[in-house]
């Protein structure tokens, strides 16, 4: 059974049809790309999957459970994490705090433990700290653990955002334009990073991206959206040769 199954996903913003009849099966361990011109509805699909919007119609099953109508934090706790197109770190907190807060769903101590700092609180906080530092170490971010997130350079902030998403212990990771604003060298690093985290954390990864170089080289399967509708689906080679995709991106040839 696929890890995530999306059937007939449709969403309207008032009278505007943002996504229409979107279907996708994500198999465990896959690396899938979602591309399309600006305004095609890619981020809306992510927002629907994460629970930011409730779809007008359609079904999303994750790991066997129907997740339509759940609140975003519940969906995240089930194992879907994401990064954002515009970085949304908690800028004034340290990198370490960003990682720790993302483990909220796994805090087991109660409110009274938090109010009175009981031994149970300390034991668990130490565990959380340990896990966080370990994760930062894995992603080569440990040196910045005590820096304010907003003071890091752009590329590192992207990396911290991925680390924060990983801290929620997802099974499916949604990356919304991870390469936006990166220079070619940073994109090379990102390519390696995405491959590496998939293997290291046994993840299924779903990427929205405009950088064709990145999407074509890492994705096994690509879906193309235009005006909310799926216009093509297939391997990178198939997509590159598909006339409808070329038309959507470059426009029609004028006779």
């Amino acid at each position: 059974m696929p890890l995530c199954q999306i059937r007939g996903l449709t969403h309207y913003f008032g009278g505007l049809r943002a996504v229409y009849d979107f279907n996708l099966d994500l198999e465990e361990g896959e690396l899938i790309g979602l591309i399309g011109p600006n305004g095609a509805g890619k981020t809306t699909v992510f927002n629907l999957v994460c629970g930011v919007y409730r779809p007008t119609e359609g079904e999303i099953r994750f790991n066997g459970t129907d997740i339509v109508g759940l609140r975003p934090h519940q969906i995240t706790a089930l194992g879907i994490a994401r990064t954002f197109q515009n970085i949304r770190l908690w800028g004034q907190r340290t990198v370490l705090d960003n990682i720790r807060i993302a483990q909220y769903a796994r805090v087991r101590y109660g409110l009274l433990d938090a109010f009175f700092h009981t031994p149970r609180y300390w034991a668990e906080e130490k565990e959380i700290l340990h896990r966080s530092l370990e994760l930062l170490d894995l992603l080569d971010l440990k040196a910045y653990a005590y820096e304010q997130a907003q003071n890091l350079p752009y590329g590192l902030q992207r990396r911290v955002e991925i680390a924060r998403a990983l801290a929620t212990q997802p099974r499916l990771l949604l990356l919304d334009e991870p390469a936006a604003g990166m220079n070619p060298a940073e994109i090379e690093d990102l390519l390696d990073l995405i491959h590496w985290i998939r293997d290291q954390f046994h993840l299924t990864i779903w990427v929205i991206e405009h950088q064709m170089r990145l999407i074509m080289s890492i994705c096994e399967r690509i879906k193309v959206l235009d005006f909310g509708e799926t216009i093509a689906e297939g391997t990178p080679a198939e997509i590159q040769a598909n006339p409808r995709v070329i038309q959507a991106y470059l426009g029609e040839e004028v006779a």
Binding site: H73, R82, L89
Partner: peptide
């Protein structure tokens, strides 16, 4: 600390399991 996460970015907080 989730209180502070709400101040800094509420949507990010909700999407990061808070």
């Amino acid at each position: 600390k989730s209180v502070i996460a709400i101040r800094e970015d509420e949507i990010a907080a909700e999407l990061m399991s808070v």
